[in-house]
Nucleic acid binder design. Structure first.
Lengths: 323, 323
DNA sequence: TCGATTGCGGCCAGGATCCGACCTATACGG
DNA sequence: CCGTATAGGTCGGATCCTGGCCGCAATCGA
């Protein structure tokens, strides 16, 4: 069996392990002569993979960071870990990379062996929703299907539940998937209505690729993200919370991160936080988690929610405290 | 330039795109004849990558799910998304895959171009801690460094802050990284003390690979995870919460997931939940998030914490409610 | 300072392999 | 029914790959 390309792939995967491989060990492992290993290393370098070598005893080869990403060779467990990690990130765990997460997830799912797919699904079922009151959940798997259809330029079929509750079945030309204000939107051209439409992904179910290719038309507005922002301006309710937190600035900055909102120092014991989100539950949970005394100034909905939360939590311990 | 193995790698990356590639297009792109493309596809199939083909017009090749993971070819943004996703997962977002996440992260970081590394760091700084009171945070990057040292069989140097506050500088032979009870532990042999030691990763700072290789010795206890569990038995305080939740079983099951603990139905309006965690803050936050009325029976620490929480949240809205 | 170990690259010869060209079969859509 | 796509066979010639040999350079430890 003299399978050169296969050997190169194996070599690449071995070198990806964070350790050094002496040429002799690689030769034995791949059942070829050390000379061939040297030649293979040369080949990899010519292909642009930065293989570094240290000479002398205890020396060896390893793959280092270069200009471009080498192909990642993963074992089963690592692939599952990445899939699960992406599924959480594709929600709104980290702002700014939602779209890339979904693309990567689509790529991964396409080639993920089915036995691993089951493990991913099982692990995901066991995952705790991080925040309450987050509105209808979307399945990251659905997002991946949509992203794949966008990339493949295939028509997409799905059921849509409009704002007034009417259910319709649609078949559209998906153009782009946009994450905006903690929600996902699909920008697409609807051939039945002969016009561009924006669908909320959380109101869409059973997306299916049809296999029907289409020639992508040009979006009138140029950029899809701007298009969504423009169309939705004023239609989404955003809650703006203004809070005084009784804790030093450094502690809060470390605690909240930069995504929480604008944090300003009032004096050495207090800070003012302005935070925006689309649900008061989310705002409330964040505040309750900070762990210091605080005062809420706005909005009234948040005050009402926190009042209710305090009552609920207070009642939960009354019996145990013997009152 | 007739570089067969390189062409195969390129082909693999092209086929990973979620779209179909007609043989003629591939031939033109790779500067070979269509016949060679067919042969290459054959080769890939022999290597175990399931290339599927649809015949007829609009047909083409694409890579589907098979028995093994093919090498993943990622663009910059996708690589960053995966790194960020893994960093969160390597915390304790999902139980059961922490170790695999760290391994995958170590592998990724090793080959991640430096310009992307900066983006990952920047995004991570903006990440919001998901849960409060989680004790000292661990930098997933540190975990990756440790995992790399374990895989490379290199000695590891770090500063350690013992339970009594004493700071020491250590150099050890890292053996394995174990995740146990929502904490990370490093099992290693300490040559200075000539004995096996377990270090808590959250108390360890500035881990550095030394480049000094060592021959791994055999752990007396066989399995590292069992060793940690054995040594730590009784030393970690585990809080066991018993709670009655006033909501139907189905709603709670969907809300809590399976990892929350044992959930039993009392009647159609109430359930009993037994949940374990190492911090009452964590338990308390989870309960407050459920969004229904509940009663806490045990433990007293949790009752005290929730009482404090209710007071804090209640006080935060007093001014706003004009009382 | 010296020796051992490891990577680096050139050379050569034999043999396996790859490529392109040509052909036919088959499946799918219009 | 035709055009286009994949699928696969065969063949000859060019190419490339492998393994063995060599001397050289770098590095580490004794």
């Amino acid at each position: 069996m003299t399978d050169t390309p296969g050997r190169l792939l194996t070599l690449l995967s071995l070198l990806q392990t964070p350790r050094e491989w002496p040429g002799s060990e690689l030769a034995e492992r791949l059942q070829v002569s050390p000379r061939t290993i040297r030649r293979d290393i040369d080949r990899l370098r010519e292909l642009g993979y930065p293989v570094e070598a240290t000479r002398g005893p205890e020396g060896g080869y390893r793959l280092t960071a270069g200009a471009a990403m080498p192909p990642l060779l993963l074992d089963d467990e690592e692939a599952v870990a990445i899939a699960v990690g992406l599924r959480t990130a594709a929600g709104h765990a980290v702002e700014g990379i939602e779209e890339a997460s979904v693309r990567a997830l689509a790529k991964l799912i396409q080639v993920l062996p089915s036995r691993l797919r089951h493990r991913v699904a099982a692990l995901n079922a066991a995952t705790v929703p991080v925040l309450p009151g987050d509105g209808p959940r979307i399945d990251p798997e659905d997002l991946a299907v949509i992203a794949a259809a966008v990339a493949a330029r295939e028509r997409l079929r799905f059921d849509y539940r409009a704002g007034d509750g009417a259910e319709t079945r649609r078949q559209v030309e998906p153009h782009r998937l946009v994450s905006y204000g903690r929600r996902w939107y699909l920008v697409c051209y609807d051939p039945d209505r002969t016009d561009w439409r924006i669908f909320r992904v959380d109101r869409l179910s059973h997306p299916q690729r049809t296999g029907l290719r289409f020639d992508p038309r040009e979006l009138p507005a140029g950029d899809a993200a701007a298009y969504v922002a423009d169309k939705l301006a004023g239609r989404t309710t955003v809650h703006r919370a203004v809070v005084t937190l009784h804790a030093p600035y450094e502690r809060l900055a470390a605690r909240l991160g930069t995504a929480a909102g604008q944090l300003e120092e009032i004096d050495e014991h207090r800070c003012r936080l302005v935070s925006r989100a689309d649900s008061v539950e989310w705002l409330g949970a964040r505040l309750a988690m900070v762990g210091c005394e605080f005062e809420v100034h706005e909005p009234p909905e948040l005050v009402a929610y926190l009042h209710e939360l305090a009552g609920r939590v207070g009642r939960s311990v009354e019996a145990a405290r013997g009152r």
